[in-house]
């Protein structure tokens, strides 16, 4: 058996073990990226094979925590794709204004960059007090980090640059305070946000939302799992609710494609019409 086939087998067994022992189901994640993430964890643990990683992760829950962190951290920035936030402001905010109460779901929020961006946008548009953002992630550790709102100071330049390109109405530095080499975001931004653990793979719909912002999360899933999650989103959106995806994602090939109209082709904003 060639070596690479053994590796594929090891990966499958590892994913099966994680599911059977811990209940975390990564079996339908896109293979190329999950393999890279598993390899990175394997190297950092000083192990030579994925079978070695399987043994450690089964017998050492702390190793599972570390692996879960690897699998749930996305390296993104506040106001990533400024044109997207501008489209939300120009095209979605007028829709949201028509609701007395606004529920927004931000699944796969990771360390919260997107959640804070949305909170700032809502505050500047005067919608904060009647909006609630439900920010969810599979991993409790990243949720805790998101809640604390502490980011390395050297990232502020990039965040500010994005915010300016978005056309923010205030000064970005008003939203955080500097402590040494860290920046802590104004906790009042989260007064209307709820952080909760939720697994897109296995958990059910838990509310009805006017807007779901799920950008660059499903790129880690294979097509079958994407389809399941799209079904979950469809059932979680109110009629005429909006689904926002990443620039390189699409609902074109999903089973609910016909239930949406395209609000903005470039920014991947879709409104549920059926």
């Amino acid at each position: 058996m060639p070596r690479e086939d053994v590796e594929d087998l090891e990966l499958e067994l590892l994913l099966e073990a994680l599911y059977r022992h811990y209940g975390y189901d990564f079996r339908e994640y896109a293979r190329a990226s999950i393999k890279r993430r598993m390899w990175r964890r394997m190297m950092e643990e000083g192990l030579a094979t994925l079978s070695g990683l399987q043994e450690r992760v089964l017998h050492d829950p702390a190793c599972m925590e570390r692996l879960l962190l690897d699998l749930s951290i996305n390296v993104t920035s506040m106001f990533r794709d400024p044109t997207f936030y501008r489209a939300v402001r120009d095209k979605i905010v007028p829709l949201l204004r028509t609701y007395p109460f606004i529920r927004i779901w931000n699944p796969g929020c990771s360390t919260g960059e997107e959640t804070y961006s949305l909170a700032i946008l809502l505050r500047e548009e005067g919608l904060e007090s009647r909006a609630r953002i439900y920010a969810t992630d599979i991993n409790a550790a990243v949720l805790q980090q998101a809640k604390e709102g502490i980011f390395p100071l050297d990232r502020m330049q990039e965040f500010t640059h994005n915010y300016l390109r978005y056309g923010g109405r205030c000064s970005f530095s008003d939203y955080y305070k500097v402590y040494g080499d860290r920046a802590r975001f104004d906790p009042s931004l989260l007064e209307h946000a709820v952080f909760a653990q939720h697994n897109l793979v296995s958990d059910a719909s838990f509310n009805e939302f006017n807007l779901i912002v799920c950008r660059n999360v499903m790129i880690y899933f294979d097509r079958a799992l994407q389809d399941k999650v799209h079904d979950l989103f469809y059932r979680s959106l109110v009629r005429s609710g909006v689904l926002a995806l990443g620039h390189k994602e699409s609902i074109r090939f999903t089973s609910h494609a016909d239930a949406y109209e395209e609000l903005d082709r470039q920014e991947k904003l879709y409104r549920r019409v059926l």
Binding site: A30, R31, A32, S33, R36, R37, I73, N74, V75, T76, R80, N216, I219, Y220, K248
Partner: peptide, 18 residues
């Protein structure tokens, strides 16, 4: 600002660390 990955028959993207 994305990594491009190749799988058998299709592409995948990721926003893992640079």
């Amino acid at each position: 600002d994305y990594h491009l990955l190749v799988e058998p028959g299709r592409f995948a993207l990721s926003i893992d660390a640079p």
